[in-house]
Amino acid sequence: MKTIEDLKTRIKELGRQAAEYSQQAAQASKTNREKSRSLMQQAREASKRYQILIQELKRLQG
């Protein structure tokens, strides 16, 4: 079981990661569509994990 602080730290990391992948995908879309798709998929996956951890944090704090 993770502590609340561990969850908050991981949530921040995943949020940054999702944003970075999304930005990289936007840049790559200009030159490499396949790379852009891959990066957007990674951004979606990071975002899903982010949302799951937010729900877990709410459950622990609730």
Results as ranks from 00 to 15, higher is better:
Lys2Thr: 09
Lys2Gly: 04
Thr3Asn: 09
Thr3Asp: 07
Thr3Met: 08
Thr3Gln: 10
Ile4Ala: 11
Glu5Ala: 12
Glu5His: 13
Asp6Phe: 14
Lys8Ala: 10
Lys8Met: 09
Lys8Cys: 09
Thr9Phe: 15
Thr9Lys: 14
Thr9His: 14
Thr9Trp: 15
Thr9Leu: 12
Thr9Asp: 06
Arg10Phe: 10
Arg10Pro: 02
Arg10His: 11
Lys12Val: 06
Glu13Phe: 12
Glu13Leu: 07
Glu13Gln: 07
Leu14Asn: 01
Leu14Pro: 00
Gly15Cys: 06
Gly15Met: 05
Gly15Pro: 02
Gly15Val: 05
Arg16Thr: 05
Arg16Val: 05
Arg16Phe: 08
Gln17Tyr: 06
Gln17Val: 03
Gln17Gly: 01
Gln17Phe: 08
Ala18Asn: 04
Ala19Trp: 03
Ala19Phe: 03
Tyr21Val: 03
Ser22Trp: 04
Gln24Lys: 07
Gln24Ser: 06
Ala25His: 03
Ala25Met: 03
Ala25Glu: 00
Ala25Phe: 02
Ala26Met: 00
Ala26Cys: 00
Ala26Pro: 00
Ala26Trp: 00
Ala28Cys: 03
Ser29Arg: 01
Ser29Asn: 01
Lys30His: 06
Lys30Asn: 04
Thr31Val: 05
Thr31Ala: 05
Thr31Tyr: 12
Thr31Arg: 06
Asn32Glu: 03
Asn32Gly: 06
Arg33Gln: 09
Arg33Asp: 06
Lys35Cys: 03
Lys35Tyr: 07
Lys35Asn: 04
Lys35Gly: 03
Ser36Glu: 01
Ser36Met: 03
Arg37Gln: 09
Ser38Val: 02
Ser38Thr: 04
Leu39Gln: 02
Gln41Met: 09
Gln41Phe: 04
Gln41Ile: 07
Gln42Glu: 05
Ala43Trp: 00
Ala43Glu: 00
Ala43His: 01
Arg44Gln: 11
Arg44Trp: 08
Ala46Asn: 03
Ala46Leu: 05
Ser47Arg: 13
Ser47Glu: 11
Ser47Gln: 12
Ser47Val: 08
Lys48Ile: 14
Lys48Tyr: 15
Arg49Gly: 07
Arg49Met: 12
Arg49Leu: 14
Arg49Phe: 09
Arg49Gln: 12
Tyr50His: 15
Tyr50Lys: 13
Tyr50Gly: 07
Ile52Asp: 14
Ile52Thr: 14
Leu53Phe: 11
Ile54Asn: 11
Ile54His: 12
Gln55Gly: 09
Glu56Ile: 10
Glu56Lys: 15
Leu57Gln: 13
Leu57Arg: 14
Lys58Pro: 05
Lys58His: 13
Arg59Trp: 10
Arg59Gly: 06
Leu60Thr: 13
Leu60Gln: 14
Leu60Glu: 12
Gln61Glu: 15
Gln61Leu: 14
Gly62Tyr: 14
